[in-house]
Design a protein around this nucleic acid. Structure first.
Lengths: 359, 359
DNA sequence: TATCTTCGCTAAACCGGTTTGCTAAACCGG
DNA sequence: CCGGTTTAGCAAACCGGTTTAGCGAAGATA
């Protein structure tokens, strides 16, 4: 049973080298303040002792951590099951790394985002999909940590990046309407906290509004019963669709608010021996990398996922690094519908009747 | 232009409440050492001042960070583009969160993993796909940070979790051989450092060994020219396959070491108007969630990705939390071939000739 | 030779908390 | 009323570094 080796401290190096702690610190951080040979000697001794400056101690005096936090409203284990998040992280990571920042993921620790946040040692935070009335936002602000909100209703005092959810959703719905669909099922993403109803300003509500606007424009409506929600994953999509079917819904098309859910829905439909888009059309939202490669290729609303991550970090760093004379910025990115193979004309009999009859 | 509010310190609260710093600290950490009403009063004042204990300072005295690091050999922006990593992170995150740990991703900062690592404030590290001769492993050990290696050659002194790469690869190759394929293209994952050749102990080499064993068993071999590598992403797969084609290769099957690359390869083949598996069979490696949903459903080697992440964290925490009387543990997980729709019999003419002729 | 810089280095303060050791007052049984 | 135990709270040390102010010696300038 070996003794856990003790980490050498700066004082150990100083003693060994016969210099002051200051000299050792200089040897690492500003070698030019030391005679070249002294600096080298100190570093050699440090090396040989296996000394590395303790990162936490260093953070404490330097007042920054070179880390940015990514705040998620749900457990990371569920967040990561959504490919959207992978792509978003890609953008965040790319921009962060370029500026020399590492990433720290913060998720509700045993239910409390606040507690998780109070432990996190970060210079700033990008929060994704956090409804802005979340008390944590206020708490973070009070702790003096800069934050930028992504996919949340913008708050004037924080930076934000949003996309045109309503427009994208409307385009998706218009596409279906043009194909003759009248009876659709909407699959929404579950609100972070399954507590209350649907956050009136969350992405689910915004996209739903877009869908409804399109239907309203042609004098139709999407009843609340036609909206079902679940976690944004393949399994979530499967479950949501099956639930709808069990409830007796027989739509000719489904509007999913996430590609993963759309893919799940297609799987579930297939398992019922329905064809896509022959019997049922499916349109997703996100346009993840794999969307063109699934069977059939997924018609979906493209959003610039990576760029959202990049922009968020860029906004954040501009305030973290105090290059920001002009107050928080708000950026809005466009969405666009990409028609692939998962949508087609509504079955004829369905176009005549109110509800589709299948098989 | 508003003044950046200064974060209140413990001393501010103490002064305001007319008590010592100690009392304030007690109010937060061991309230039972204070008269109940004093504790309440202090907390109220703290609340009202917007005081939260500075996490870095707290870490310094408590000697732990409640954070575990995830070390990746490549930039996070490329790592995250591989769905495998998302699933792995899912496992890591799930296990970490359960024990109250947050996640810190560490990637080569401007090329140097060592520098990135020396900045990271973590209690332990799980390193994925890091070849063990990486100097950083030694550096981390010297810094006294516990580490467990995933998908790397196991080092006796560190915990590790590996999978049966050789067996999985062999099974994939045997499957193709059984279908009559003789001329295959291998698409490997790029070694982290594009420096030297292929790390003789990395996952690419191990899987290649498996492929070759299977071929050797029937008296065939896979020449080095039939092995091409690239980044483990869809685009990497597209590029790798196109490169092989330009070099004149005309295999009847491709063995990809990652599902993302396999999917890319299928795309590239499709774009050449080849059918899968009619003209060319494709088998992947990983069995990501989307593998069954692509077109055609991907035949691939399943590995328990999430579990790898979970086991890694569990191993790591067992030493971080000093519950480990028995030295580092090594865990090995099984792989298995999952046959779906992307593989089929080799075209007849190809079975007779040496190289396939297409279209 | 006297004064001013520069060079090389150090002692001490500081970052913002936690923890140890101790004391004075209150409490307690006899 | 006395010695012993709690209780409530404080001062100081500590975690492990960085940074400021300053000092003596050497070299430059006058």
């Amino acid at each position: 049973m070996e003794l856990r080796t003790i980490r050498p401290r700066i004082a150990d190096v100083a003693r060994e080298a016969g210099v002051s702690k200051t000299a050792v610190s200089f040897a690492f951080n500003s070698p030019d303040r030391l005679a070249p040979e002294t600096a080298v000697r100190i570093r050699e001794i440090a090396e040989q002792l296996g000394y590395t400056p303790h990162p936490v101690a260093r953070m404490l005096t330097q007042r920054h951590t070179l880390t940015i936090g990514v705040l998620t409203p749900q457990a990371l284990s569920v967040i990561f099951s959504n490919p959207f998040f992978g792509a978003f992280s890609e953008g965040v990571a790319g921009a962060a790394e370029e500026s020399g920042y590492a990433l720290h993921f913060i998720s509700p620790l045993h239910g409390s985002l606040a507690r998780a946040m109070s432990r996190a040692t970060v210079d700033g935070v990008v929060a994704i999909g956090l409804s802005d009335d979340h008390p944590e936002v206020e708490q973070i602000r009070r702790a003096g940590v800069p934050i930028v909100l992504v996919d949340s209703t913008a708050l004037p005092e924080h930076g934000s990046v949003e996309i045109d959810d309503v427009g994208g959703a409307r385009a998706a719905a218009e596409h279906l309407i043009g194909l003759g669909h009248r009876n659709v099922l909407v699959i929404g993403v579950e609100p972070p906290a399954p507590s209350v109803a649907i956050d009136p300003d969350g992405v689910t509500s915004r996209r739903l509004r877009g869908y409804r606007e399109a239907f309203a424009a042609v004098g139709l409506e999407i009843p609340d019963e036609s909206v079902v929600v679940g976690p944004a994953s393949i399994d979530g999509g499967i479950a949501a669709l099956n639930r709808a079917w069990e409830d007796g819904m027989r739509p000719t098309a489904v509007l999913a608010m996430s590609d993963a859910m759309a893919i799940g829905a297609m799987r579930a439909l297939r398992d019922m021996r329905l064809t896509i888009p022959g019997d049922v059309s499916v349109v997703g939202f996100d346009d993840i990398d794999l969307a063109p490669h699934v069977d059939p290729p997924l018609t979906t609303v493209h959003q610039p996922i990576r760029r959202m991550g990049e922009e968020a970090v860029s906004l954040l760093l501009s305030v973290v690094q105090r290059r920001d004379p002009s107050g928080p910025e708000h950026r809005r990115l466009e969405t666009r519908l990409i028609v692939r193979g998962s949508t087609g004309p509504a079955p004829l009999e369905a176009q005549r009747e109110g509800a589709g009859v299948n098989d």
